[in-house]
Design a binder for these strands. Structure first.
Length: 875
RNA sequence: GGGCGAUUAGCUCAGUUGGUUAGAGCUCCUGACUUACAUUCAGGCGGCCGAGGGUUCGAGUCCUUCAUCGCCCACCA
């Protein structure tokens, strides 16, 4: 067997295996009738994306389960890909153009799109490369993009089907408009932030009595240019008499009516509201109810248009300033209150969103939502942790129609054409040549593209070439589980469920795992603008990909609070694995490839520590498997960490340190190492793959090895408890040694207080034994407790306490300590016996609890007796 | 305003259906250069389990009220 290098060189090892897995297509998946499929689709990162901690966490989780299932014998497909991310991507290229002093309109749609595709070709794979560095075991040959040709086919097909079903309609609405991106945003895309603004109180004079006025309050004075009414609550006594009266809109001098509407809150502001139906969603509703005029005073870029009179051409915020100033001069401004309210911001560029009247395409969601609610209600789809079910339900039950048109160029174009001659609307998945009604060839395609999510919601089946039918689609759909962040339950998860049921007739996945948000140590979201983002790639180069993965998962209960030091735990653990392997490889020379751990553990002739570590190993194997199946990854890691480090390295490898000549010991160490590598592999693929390749030179890579076999009913209770006794014994001896700073070469005397008749033995422990103890656990070299009899210490299985004597011991102080202990134990004893004499307890508590309590009482009483003996012996 | 979650050691978190003396890791402190590993080893300190009330033989765990924090949704003229 080869040896391991002294240093764990993760940089080269990461790179080596990353390359190997790709060149050999280790993770390619095919429909295979002999195996059960296990499929995951990646939440497609934005094509503009660069790897951040959220991706790292998300993909590590997926990789753990997919590697685990692969080793468990499933035909695993992890489908990778990227999302075309409409606005984000368009932004990137628009920025490029801006540097050249051009806008997208300057270059024109076709040329602009061409540049976008060029950009995509050049830079669009960045995130994919980064995901590979993480160790993600995707089937990379299948990498898909939401604007692939076939994928576009799926998007169009879906649009047409919904259109023909009557679920797609066009309508005028106040939508969230980003004046910078020039596009509509869905409600989910408008991020509301609490903002310190102002509430302006403005006088609107009455037409018939210009000296009197009604005062309205507004946060956006510039919208007054489009006011077409003033509304008051019909039950508001202050204003009842005014209903139906006319007022004059200042600055514009338009005559507007005072109307009554229940919507108005009498408590807020002045109780009178200016109504701007074209610029506010509520006013829009009021406008419809009262049949008001809709006056749009703004250009799509946020500048005031010619309906704004002399403010024509000014930016909305510029106009606000001027309007306020002018009102002041006219003595129409009563006062300005500071007012905190939440303002929508574009989720892409953070520009303040403008509620804007425009014509958009919508999908009716209710009919799609119903079966999707049912699928979760009847348990076909499960959320982990379960509490997210409520969040999903809450949204689905109050679902609103989905605005799917976007006024940008990068995306799937809406497959709708308008006939210039007869105004017919044509929906078609093929580009139509003439109007089916009037045969005119003057057709114009709708300029808008679809919301990016309108393609992502098809991801689980469109990536498998739907609407084409093929073997892969049949075999791998529905997928198994989905891993994503809770933020996109509405955007994506819910919509995928609806699409899956609607178009495939089956749910898209059965389990949804929602992981936490990665935050910095102070609990803030990691973001570039805050400058608190930790770059996963930096961590990879500094600590290794395995360290990144292991540490992230270790912290992944709920939200993760991450700082750089947290990655040390993973780095240290990888290093530990490396060094333990190195030690074993240096010493194990006679290896039997068919060595059977199960049989060895059952053999009484095998030394206790060996039987113990085997039992621990099987216990851990079970725990790790169960935890993964149960989506409890950090728990799985704790079991691994505890076993490998605290049991295997700290105890077993120490115990066998001078027994390497024993072939059983060699084989056990190697076998346990090999199998541990297997169950560590999903968490830390690189270091385990490397060590495996050295131990098992010439064999298949670890990634496609099978998961270790479990054995049923290993009876290890006795082994575990004997070993525990031994560990306790050694630990207490060690403690005493360190407590009184006894040096190994000193002769000391100890009293061993035992439960045997001799009760108190004065035993001399010579320096060689102390030295042995100091060498950590060497007592256990002896195969059995009995055979260690001559060693004087291990003779006594029931040692309760050990008290050293001699010059080093302050007897008075020791006595005090023991007396305190006695008191404590006596208290425990009396409260316990009260409890055991309580009828209700005896009648109600389960038998085993009572037994335990009785045993505990006995032990305590025994302890008291022994402590008293110690006291008397000291005197 | 509606919903969800959290509160356990200085910090970050575990803690099964209520059942021994509430556990880890990090930090801090004390020791050890023991040839796989100082990215190490052996120890120690540190807890009225957010507050009050209730159910129970028994509550970190169940119920209730309150407090503080976080997240999501809606509204905010």
């Amino acid at each position: 067997m080869k040896e391991l290098s002294k240093r764990f060189d993760f940089i080269n090892i990461d790179e080596k295996w990353c390359k190997y897995w790709q060149e050999n297509n280790t993770f390619s998946a095919k429909a295979n009738p002999d195996k059960e499929p296990y499929t995951i689709v990646i939440p497609p990162p934005n094509v503009t994306g660069i790897l951040h901690m959220g991706h790292a966490l998300n993909n590590t989780l997926q990789d753990i389960i997919i590697r685990y299932k692969r080793m468990k014998g499933f035909e695993t497909l992890w489908m990778p890909g990227t999302d075309h991310a409409g606005i984000a991507t368009q932004n990137v290229v628009e920025k490029q153009l801006a540097k050249e002093g051009k806008s997208r309109q300057d270059v024109g749609r076709d040329a602009f799109l061409k540049r976008l595709w060029e950009w995509k070709k050049e830079y669009g794979n960045t995130i994919i490369h980064q995901l590979k560095k993480l160790g993600s075991s995707c089937d990379w040959q299948r990498t898909r993009f939401t604007m692939d040709e076939g994928y576009s086919e799926a998007v169009k097909t879906v649009f047409i089907r919904l259109y023909e079903k009557g679920l797609i309609y066009q309508g005028e609405r106040i939508i969230n408009w980003c004046p910078r991106c020039h596009t509509a945003l869905s409600d989910e895309e408008a991020e509301h932030q609490e903002t310190q603004g102002h509430l302006y109180h403005i006088k609107y004079p009455y037409r018939d009595n210009p000296k009197e006025h009604i005062i309205v309050a507004t946060t956006r004075p510039e919208t007054m240019l489009g006011d077409t009414a003033i509304a008051v609550n019909p039950n508001d006594d202050r204003y009842k008499a005014l209903i139906g009266k006319k007022a004059i809109l200042p600055l514009i001098e338009r005559e507007i009516e005072i109307i009554a509407d229940e919507f108005v809150d009498t408590q807020f502001g002045t109780g009178a509201v200016k109504v701007t139906p074209a610029h506010d969603p509520n006013d829009f509703e009021i406008g419809k109810r009262h049949d008001l005029e809709f006056i749009n005073v703004m250009h799509p870029d946020g500048r005031i248009n010619k309906l704004g009179g002399k403010f024509n051409g000014l930016d909305r915020f510029e106009a606000r300033k001027l309007i306020v100033q002018e009102l002041k001069e006219l003595d129409l401004l009563v006062r300005i209150d500071t007012h905190s309210h939440s303002v929508g911001h574009c989720y892409r560029c953070s520009t303040v969103v403008e509620p804007y009247l425009s014509r958009q395409w919508f999908v009716k969601m209710k009919p799609l939502a119903e079966p999707a609610i049912e699928a979760v209600n009847n348990g076909k789809i499960k959320f982990h942790p379960q509490r997210w079910t409520k969040v999903y339900m809450n949204w689905m039950e109050n679902i609103r129609d989905w605005c799917i048109s976007r006024q940008i160029w990068w995306g799937h174009r809406i497959p709708i054409w308008y006939c210039q001659d007869c105004n017919e609307i044509i929906a078609s998945s093929q580009d139509p040549e003439k109007c089916p009604k009037c045969s005119s060839s003057k057709l114009r395609q709708d300029p808008d593209v679809m919301d990016t999510w309108f393609s992502s919601w098809l991801w689980p089946f469109a990536t498998l070439d739907w609407p084409q039918e093929n073997e892969d689609l049949k075999y791998f759909y529905p997928t198994s589980s989905l891993f994503t962040a809770p933020e996109i339950i509405f955007f994506w998860v819910a919509r995928m469920i609806m699409a899956g049921i609607e178009f495939m007739g089956d749910i898209p996945f059965s389990d949804v795992y929602l992981h936490g948000t990665v935050r910095d140590a102070k609990g803030r979201k990691m973001s570039k603008s805050l400058g608190n983002a930790l770059d996963p790639l930096e961590i990879i180069s500094e600590y290794g990909a395995d360290a990144l993965r292991f540490s992230l998962i270790m912290n992944s209960g709920q939200d993760l609070f991450i700082s750089k030091e947290k990655f040390e735990i993973g780095r240290n653990f990888a290093n530990k694995i490396w060094n333990a392997s190195r030690l074993i490889l240096m010493n194990a020379k006679e290896i039997d490839p068919d060595f059977d751990l199960g049989k060895t553990s059952a053999s009484e002739t095998v030394a206790l520590p060996t039987r113990w570590i085997i039992a621990k190993y099987f216990e851990t194997l079970k725990q790790v498997g169960a935890a993964i199946e149960d989506y409890k990854y950090s728990e799985a890691e704790s079991h691994i960490y505890e076993f490998f480090w605290n049991n295997f390295c700290d105890w077993y490898l120490e115990i066998i340190k001078d027994q390497w000549q024993d072939t059983t010991v060699q084989n056990v160490a190697v076998k346990i190492l090999e199998n541990s590598l297997k169950f560590i592999h999903p968490f830390m693929p690189f270091v385990t793959e490397e060590i495996w390749s050295i131990i098992k030179e010439g064999e298949d890579p670890l990634s496609i090895q099978s998961w270790p076999k479990d054995i049923e009913n290993i009876d290890s209770a006795k082994t575990l408890s004997s070993m525990q006794t031994l560990i306790d014994l050694i630990t207490s001896i060690r403690n005493i040694r360190s407590q009184w700073k006894i040096k190994p070469n000193e002769m000391i005397k100890c009293i061993l207080v035992t439960t045997s008749e001799e009760s108190i033995d004065l035993i001399e422990i010579n320096s060689s034994i102390i030295k042995a103890l100091a060498k950590a656990k060497s007592l256990m070299i002896s195969k059995e407790l009995e055979s260690a009899k001559n060693n004087a210490v291990a003779v006594v299985e029931n040692i309760k306490c050990i008290v050293p004597l001699g010059d080093l011991l302050d007897i008075e102080q020791e006595k005090k300590k023991i007396l305190a202990q006695i008191e404590q134990q006596q208290n425990a004893s009396s409260s316990l016996s009260t409890r055991l004499n309580n009828e209700k307890f005896v009648n109600n508590a389960p038998a085993e609890v009572i037994e335990k309590e009785k045993a505990r009482l006995e032990t305590i009483d025994l302890n008291i007796k022994e402590l008293k003996d110690v006291i008397s012996s000291l005197e």
